[in-house]
């Protein structure tokens, strides 16, 4: 069974809107509360490599896409979570599972203002330390 099908089966009802864009690009959505569970399954059980996360400001809320790569077949599996509450967006941090998430979570925190619960070192990465509070460069201007 292909890895994608196995993942789909194991995650069962936690998977929403599964779609395959091309032969090696798969996207699906998950509820934010399940992110640790989903990431553990992908990273630890299936041995996928965490590539990066893309934070994005969309009309429906703040979205994070976690990109994982299965290097044996070259498939990219991207998990989409939508944080609808733009006033106080937060999600569980993945740093304790794999340290590679540390920088990107700091980056998304400072550029989009998403709070990562449980991140041990949530401080500025790219912006200056005295960057004004509540100003997030990647949030769309029309809402500021």
């Amino acid at each position: 069974m292909a890895i994608a099908d196995e993942i789909k089966e194991r995650l069962n009802d936690k998977v929403m809107d599964w779609y395959q864009h091309s032969s090696r690009r798969i996207y699906f959505s998950a509820k934010p509360k399940y992110i640790r569970e989903v990431a553990r399954l992908l990273f630890q059980d299936f041995g996928l490599r965490f590539v990066i996360a893309t934070g994005q400001d969309t009309p429906g809320g703040l979205e994070i896409l976690y990109h994982f790569s299965f290097d044996k077949t070259g498939e990219m599996i991207s998990v989409r979570v939508l944080l609808e509450d733009k006033k106080k967006p937060e999600i569980d941090s993945l740093v304790t599972m794999f340290p590679a998430a540390e920088w990107i979570e700091r980056e998304i925190w400072e550029l989009l203002g998403i709070n990562f619960i449980g991140h041990p070192n949530l401080k500025h990465l790219l912006l200056i330390d005295d960057w004004p509070q509540n100003q997030y460069p990647l949030r769309h201007k029309r809402e500021v």
């Binding site: 490599r49 044996k72 070259g74 990219m76 794999f98 590679a100």
Partner: peptide, 25 residues
């Protein structure tokens, strides 16, 4: 190398056979 998700020559020097050119041509 796995935990820090490194890649390229850094990963290949640690015994991880990954290379986008082969894996996802």
């Amino acid at each position: 190398a796995i935990d820090w998700c490194v890649e390229g020559p850094t990963a290949r020097a640690s015994g991880i056979k990954i290379d986008v050119r082969k894996d996802d041509p």
